[in-house]
Amino acid sequence: MADGSKTIWKRQIPLFLMIVPGCLYLIVNNYAPMFGVFIAFKNIDYAKGIFKSDWVGFSNFTYLFKTADAFVITRNTVLYNLAFIVIGTVTGIAVGIMLSELRGSVKLKFYQTVLLLPYLLSWVIVAYIGYAFMSSDIGLLNNAILPALGLKPISWYADYKVWPFILTAVNLWKGIGYSSVLYLSTIIGIDKNLYEAAQIDGASKWRQIKNITLPMLKPMVIMLVILNVGRIFNSDFGLFYQLPMNSGALYPTTQTIDTYVYRGLMQLNDVSMSAAAGLYQSVVGFVMVIAANAFVRKVSSENVLF
């Protein structure tokens, strides 16, 4: 027996060798920083080095939560995510259904291809496009569209009140192709006999969508929504950093946990505070994912993630 297991191990040496580079990468890139979270409990002083900087316990956190920033970044991150989840899901399903109802595969391919284009653009390019629209002197909005509607020009990069709408619209613009293709793939998988039977019974298109398509999409919707709720503490750094062009006047409505951590680390040189905010995000995010998964296990255990 002992001899048998020894030969199994020996035979598997090549398999172990195969996983070495990938595992090394994960250890360095993913696991080492997990142990680096101790930085949040130190007062980082580059002169002393990271390991020799003084321990300060939870004072970085108490300080962070005393500032108004902690509330603003948490509120923005969570509220934007909620808006994105609701709007993204509803439009994704609607467009997915429209694509699935199209007659002709050439049309389908055309619409699908075009709607996915924004998903391929980097946020830097999207910021350039945004600037072409919103630049206060030469942008298309202030120069052509608003005057045509008889409206006064808006100084887009200084007025934070308009940004919840801009960010939501751009997020939808960039993500609509992705989510509709996702839902489309589920709709394609629905048994065609269901629709044929409904047609024979004289059910209208609307009734077919309401009574067949939507109920069949439900598990997928639940799963994706819960996944996104699990990520509610994360924000797309590109959307919130690039599109507002890092403009300070817009922070009340554009600052999220991710941009706050970036600015603390790279612009304000407040490493300890930044690390505290980052750890706060990681831990709450982790709890949210675990909770979301536990919830799925309860409502529909076949869709459980782990």
Binding site: I19, P33, G36, Y262, L265, V271, S274, F286, I290
Partner: peptide
């Protein structure tokens, strides 16, 4: 064991500050 080792990286991360320092 290794599958879990891979999967866990999708659930938790140390954040950008420790990565940046490293």
């Amino acid at each position: 064991a290794v599958s879990f080792f891979v999967f866990f990286t999708m659930l938790f991360n140390g954040g950008i500050v420790p990565s940046y320092m490293m």
